[in-house]
């Protein structure tokens, strides 16, 4: 019966292996969020400048990452980097590159939106007291827009974490991949292993993402 099947999670080293897989998942997410976040803020600031070529190129970059499903992006980099650029990276690093570039693209749009929604008169009164462009960003625009961009940025973080589930597809040994192996290895003893293992991974993702969602909602309300 299914209810005894829960033991599959704790059988042998299974739990430790799942946690090991989860760590791979989290590591990819963390690195991508950190590097992609910083890159995204820089690109977001650049997108508020009036240089048309710069705006066009950055917009194109954003739309490219927006239109193509992440699965396709992963395979694009996974196949094309070694084949056409002779860059043989482990799958995990390919994933970090894709998620970083994707995070940067989406974050840049959030940052741009927040910067542009600071009222014009704030900019004008900053300029009126003689602030330089750098000072204007540092003392007026960035502090005022941070509040506006935080909920969306946090939601983006949960999106990145959820999208790490795709690591499986380029054979990274993430939590889902480990889960699959456990299910197959225990097929005889636990025919309903899939229910418990995938159920457990479902809740692991939930436990990681839910606090971020709560935080984003709270910030949204206090805006």
């Amino acid at each position: 019966m299914a209810h005894s099947g829960i033991n599959i999670i704790f059988e042998g080293a299974n739990f430790a292996r799942l946690m090991g897989g989860l760590w791979v998942t989290i590591r990819v997410a963390l690195i991508s969020i950190a590097i992609g976040g910083v890159l995204g803020i820089l690109l977001g600031v650049l997108r508020t400048f009036h240089n048309r070529l710069l705006r066009f190129v950055l917009r194109l970059y954003l739309e490219f990452f927006r239109i193509i499903p992440t699965v396709a992006l992963l395979f694009l980099f996974y196949y094309i980097l070694p084949k056409d650029m002779h860059l043989n990276l482990p799958a995990e690093e390919v994933a970090v590159i894709v998620f970083t570039l994707w995070m940067a693209a989406e974050a840049s749009d959030i940052v741009r939106g927040a910067l542009e929604s600071v009222p014009q008169h704030q900019i004008e009164s900053g300029l009126a007291i003689g602030l330089s462009r750098n000072q204007l960003y540092r003392f007026v625009l960035v502090p005022q827009s941070i509040k506006l961009m935080m909920p969306a940025l946090i939601n983006l973080v949960t999106r990145i974490i959820k999208t790490t589930s795709l690591l499986l597809m380029i054979s990274v040994l993430d939590v889902i991949n480990v889960g699959q192996q456990i299910i197959e290895a225990n097929q005889q003893q636990y025919p309903q292993g899939a229910f418990w293992i995938y159920g457990a991974i479902f809740f692991l993702y939930f436990i990681i993402c839910y606090p971020f969602s709560l935080l984003a909602k709270r910030l949204q309300r206090n805006k």
Binding site: S165, A194, Y205, S213
Partner: peptide, 20 residues
């Protein structure tokens, strides 16, 4: 629904639910 990936939702429905 919002805090879990579609991939694991699909695995649970496709491979897990037959257990029930």
């Amino acid at each position: 629904s919002r805090n879990t990936p579609l991939l694991i939702q699909l695995f649970f429905i496709y491979y897990g639910l037959p257990g029930l």
